[in-house]
């Protein structure tokens, strides 16, 4: 008590002012802090708790400990959804990354109409996934779709796309690449524009050719953006849902089922809310791990200009 008095020799009005200052601050924070606590933090604990019960959302939950987690690893449909999600990421991320990088490099040059071109490549990013998923279902319609019609005119019999278990996931990957390309392009363009022009000019004066300049100057200096893009693509990849729901519904026969769709199906169709929550927690752990890699990696191997 005496120590506190000694360190804070403030007068009564000063203390009242300080109290008012703090109270005002909390008032400014409350309109966002309360909803975040109620609708993000609180349900997060709910998800963790639910994952330990067997529960159909209606009757009384039955404690099963870690049983739901064990079941995840033996349930073939869940394992398949997980495998498909990984395949989706393996199919989409490199495609979008390499395409986006090439576009960013090309559209960073002084080309007439490059703003228009950038605008066009970015267009799909702003659209609703449900709308464009239905559009892609139409384009890739096996019997009357324009893609197979065009293929037929050059003598190729197009595949069954989203109606064929072999082609359902590739159909989704194709549509996703189209939609995400502009997103990666814009992020990498921003990175390219942050590289000082003098560095590249210096490399040019040193006689480095275009390939050498790209490999030894541009790409290393672009690495923070590249790193960020890869991390974001991975996180978004594990959360894939809308396009799967609208393009294939996870089918045919589970051939394009993914983690989030599986969570949805388990909880709201099969009354397996506990297992769905366990799968949610697993998804959260993956997202968290990728985010931690980002935080660590940013400090470590990335070269800053």
């Amino acid at each position: 008590m005496t120590a506190r008095l000694a360190s804070a020799p403030a007068s009564a009005p000063a203390r009242a002012r300080r109290r008012r200052h703090i109270a005002t601050a909390y008032l400014f924070l409350a309109p966002s802090a309360i909803p975040l606590a109620a609708f993000v933090l609180y349900p997060m604990f709910g998800a963790a708790r639910n994952s330990l019960f067997q529960w159909n959302l209606i009757s009384d939950p039955v404690w099963v400990g870690l049983g739901n987690y064990g079941e995840l690893f033996t349930d073939s449909a869940t394992l398949r959804a997980f495998g498909n999600t990984v395949l989706y990421i393996v199919g989409t991320v490199p495609l979008v990354f390499i395409g986006g990088l090439m576009l960013a490099l090309a559209l960073n040059r002084a080309i007439k109409g490059r703003n228009l071109l950038r605008g066009i490549y970015f267009l799909p990013v702003i659209t609703s996934w449900i709308a464009v998923a239905i559009v892609w279902r139409w384009l890739l319609n096996p019997s009357v779709g324009v893609v197979n019609n065009v293929l037929a005119t050059i003598g190729i019999e197009g595949p069954g796309w989203w109606t064929d278990p072999q082609w359902s996931l590739p159909s989704i990957i194709l549509a996703s690449a189209w939609k995400d390309l502009g997103f990666v392009m814009v992020l990498l363009l921003a990175g390219l524009q942050a590289i000082p022009q003098e560095i590249r000019e210096a490399a040019m004066l040193d006689g480095a050719n275009a390939w050498r300049r790209l490999r030894s100057v541009t790409l290393p200096l672009l690495s923070p953006s590249i790193f960020f893009v890869v991390i974001i693509s991975l996180i978004n990849g594990f959360q894939v849902f809308d396009q799967v729901y609208a393009m294939t519904g996870g089918g045919p026969a589970g051939s394009s089922d993914v983690v989030v769709l599986r969570i949805y199906t388990l909880a709201f169709r099969y009354g397996e809310a506990g297992m769905a929550s366990a799968l949610s927690m697993l998804l959260f752990a993956i997202v968290l791990a990728i985010t931690l890699i980002q935080i660590k990696g940013e400090k470590r191997w990335v070269t800053y200009a």
Partner: peptide, 24 residues
């Protein structure tokens, strides 16, 4: 601490919360 918690909530995707949020 509060700012860190705000940032942490950005790491929690809605996909993780659908079941408990639904019952809530």
């Amino acid at each position: 601490v509060m700012f860190a918690v705000y940032l942490a909530t950005m790491m929690i995707p809605i996909q993780v919360l659908i079941v408990p949020l639904f019952t809530q």
